[in-house]
């Protein structure tokens, strides 16, 4: 099953994602302009974009475990998924700046004073160098440092999940589920052997 899926996927060009994945953004915008996002379209748009960004980040995080544990190979699509996630975080931020807060003096105040905004912002800032280096030239240029740099993804996604949990009023289920999935996907990356060796090294030193 997985083999035939992999074969089928090999025929899908990665560039298709750059056409398909932006479509929801246009759809959300269209809904917002035509009353389809309810009585408060600004918050709704902001939330839709944020949620889709987080989902894409999580899918990106799932690529490696899917290959390791299920044999499903999506590596070819990972760059497009990551870049599209960044695209949605950027739109999410833009919505916040232009439609939501509006007031210039309040923007900086919110970034410093509101922990959930600070954390979301940190997530966005971490994603910037990752987006800028998501091209073949940078991969060649940076060599092994590229892989190291892109480990920042883990932290960025985690910050995104925490950001969501913090902004929810009361104890809500959805942000907890997202955070749980993120933590799970990160935990799958811990290799017990490596960890033991590292701890061993440290205690030996």
């Amino acid at each position: 099953m997985v083999d035939s899926l992999n074969t089928a996927l090999r025929r899908v060009p990665a560039w298709l994602l750059y056409i398909v994945l932006p479509l929801p953004a246009f759809w959300f915008l269209y809904l917002g302009l035509t009353g389809g996002l309810g009585a408060e379209p600004i918050k709704a748009l902001e939330q839709e974009l944020g949620e889709f960004a987080l989902q894409l980040l999580i899918v990106g995080l799932a690529v490696t475990p899917l290959r390791r544990f299920a044999g499903l190979n999506l590596i070819r699509f990972r760059r497009a998924i990551g870049l599209m996630a960044f695209f949605y975080v950027a739109l999410h931020l833009l919505t916040w700046l232009v439609l939501d807060v509006q007031i210039l003096s309040q923007i900086w105040a919110d970034i410093v004073k509101r922990p959930y905004i600070t954390i979301g912002m940190a997530g966005f800032v971490l994603l910037v160098p990752l987006a800028l280096t998501s091209n073949n030239w940078s991969v060649r240029r940076l060599g092994p440092r590229w892989r190291k740099l892109h480990k920042l993804t883990y932290l960025a996604v985690l910050l995104g999940g925490v950001h969501y949990l913090m902004l929810a009023k009361g104890l809500q289920l959805e942000p907890l589920l997202y955070l749980g999935v993120i933590l799970g996907l990160l935990a799958l990356r811990i290799e017990p052997g490596k960890l033991r060796r590292r701890i061993g090294r440290r205690s030996a030193a």
Partner: peptide, 22 residues
Amino acid sequence: VDHPRWSQASERRIGGGLFARK
């Protein structure tokens, strides 16, 4: 007096659409 997580100095009146001012 702000809410710890957001300002209470302004508000958005529901019904103003996607470009509602505060």
